[in-house]
Design a binder for these strands. Structure first.
Lengths: 111, 111
DNA sequence: CTTGACGCTACATAATTTGTAGCTAAATTA
DNA sequence: TAATTTAGCTACAAATTATGTAGCGTCAAG
């Protein structure tokens, strides 16, 4: 067991650690936006539709502590672990597209 | 394109819809806790370490609208789509365990 | 009837997020 | 060398979101 207990769970199980960080706004998005290489703080901010620097920095700190993101000379980038996790987000992207097609085969909007 | 625009993204791309809902507290957890079959509202509440009924209900509404969760005679359960997505969370669980072992091979705690 | 379990709402308090402004430091340009 | 630009990041009030507790209306069983 590692990382200690987290919000919403007393166990500190790895999946709960992940749910804790990923269940906060912008975490998933940050990992996603770093998929094609490093981005500076400001570029990342722009990529994330102008998320506030406050949260962005808070998330980046957390993601770095968890060893998923690092700050290099060209900006923020995913670590090997972060990249590994990121690949699953790519899968999720493919899944989401198929899901949307299924939910919406003729292009009508859902509320 | 479907589901319309969401928080944090103007495009309404399926992955952004997913990031929007999953990036809110308890969403991932709810999908996770429903992995072994239906749970009543109250059982789900207990499984989620006592998340407030207010958020729980808000999330359940959203997840139902997205066609990921449904309410049946035995309580809340994942739809076929929700189950499909849930399988990826099971992958994530396996990944998270390996990740924790890597980050923490001798059992020391991280902050 | 009363009891208990169900889904769910109300509402005040607390925590999180936003948006904007601006700081310090290092590199670049004039 | 002085001015400008770009970098990461902080401050802080306003707005949004979550928490915790109480309890409502419905229904089925005892």
């Amino acid at each position: 067991m590692s990382f200690g207990p987290v919000r919403g769970s007393t166990t500190g199980r790895p999946i709960m650690v992940l749910f804790d960080i990923l269940g906060q706004r912008w975490s998933l998005r940050i990992l996603w936006e770093l998929r094609q290489g490093p981005l500076t703080f400001r570029a990342l901010r722009d990529a994330c539709d102008g998320a506030s620097p406050t949260v962005l920095n808070t998330r980046l700190k957390a993601l770095r502590q968890l060893g998923l993101v690092d700050l290099g000379p060209d900006g923020y980038l995913r670590t090997a672990d972060g990249d590994d996790l990121g690949k699953r987000l790519a899968d999720l992207d493919r899944w989401a597209n198929a899901w949307a097609d299924r939910s919406d085969p003729e292009g009508q909007q859902q509320s």
